[in-house]
Design a protein around this nucleic acid. Structure first.
Lengths: 170, 170
DNA sequence: CCAATCACGTCAACATGGCTGACATAAAAG
DNA sequence: CTTTTATGTCAGCCATGTTGACGTGATTGG
């Protein structure tokens, strides 16, 4: 009897724990995007513009297809927002040198400024959370988040071979 | 000179660390919603339906305004999806007893079944991540995620006073 | 070298899920 | 009995995703 009760309690705790995780993700993501969304709305942009600005800033000279692979949206969806960003001078397209079919994307100064402004509140939010939680908790956070990803996305956070070798050598 | 270099490196690490956090959130959220989205698409529903189903399942007898406060969308947006869910027999509305203006929402059996099906992949994903990361990491994850929330949402995860008292008594 | 493939762009049409504003009704509360 | 509250509804707009079709210039493989 005690065993059964303990088992049920185990299940309940587990269920509750998992739901907490789901909800943390829901609320965190929503609040994480709320502040940039407000800024974006003022200049007639949306969250999609932010994502493009962010990843172009993150990976200068990124190609359109690489960006598509990260965002996992169709090129038609991307071209709408990307076109606006280019026309309004936030992003620069340069024809690739090795492959002249490619359009290499880069933030202009104006783009860098917007990126900084948009991500600032998010950086602050994360920095605050990291500070409050402590280094050990941050490591746990990273571990759990990585565990939620599929292999493909998880690989983005695994240093590529050269860096791994360097780490081993140390 | 060494100080400056160290300082710069500090800043770089910090910046990189924060960006990693931002991206983990982006990728994790996307993958977290991808599988339910597929199931939902098959039956002509969207993510909004899932959220309603989820929270009605989570808080049986919830009122419309409580649900609105959780989801933070307009009643017009909610009524579109809620109406479909009610008409198609996933959710039951009962007039409140104490306050007859209220419509208390509950999942039907059909609703419970759909909720279970939708959340199953998510539960598995989280369970897997928790298992892989270990109990300590999970605690860190919770801490960091809580730190990202505004007070209002964070309060949802703080046990209400009675429970806190009980915990102290123990 | 030329046909096939590739990177990218564009047009058109549609769905989902947010939003605002206006108005309605029944119940509760002061 | 007037006001406020909880809910619902109609109508229209916007952002962002989708599919499908088609075009153009650059690259590449047989």
């Amino acid at each position: 009897m005690a065993d059964i009760k303990a088992g049920v309690n185990q299940l309940f705790l587990r269920e509750e724990e998992l739901r907490t995780g789901m909800e943390l993700l829901f609320y965190a993501y929503r609040e994480f995007t709320a502040e940039p969304d407000e800024i974006l709305a003022e200049i007639g942009f949306g969250r999609a513009h932010h994502r493009v600005i962010y990843f172009v800033g993150r990976y200068p000279k990124i190609t359109v297809s690489e960006l598509l692979a990260i965002l996992k949206i169709t090129k038609q969806s991307l071209s709408r927002v990307l076109g606006e960003l280019v026309r309004q001078g936030f992003i620069l397209q340069q024809t690739g040198v090795r492959d002249r079919r490619q359009r290499l994307l880069e933030l202009t100064e104006k783009g860098v400024e917007l990126e900084r402004q948009l991500s600032e509140t998010q950086r602050q939010r994360i920095a605050r959370a990291y500070r409050m939680a402590g280094a050990e908790a941050v490591e746990g956070f990273r571990k759990v988040m990585l565990g939620m990803l599929d292999d493909e996305d998880r690989a983005k956070f695994t240093p590529p071979l050269p860096a791994r070798l360097a780490a081993v050598k140390r």
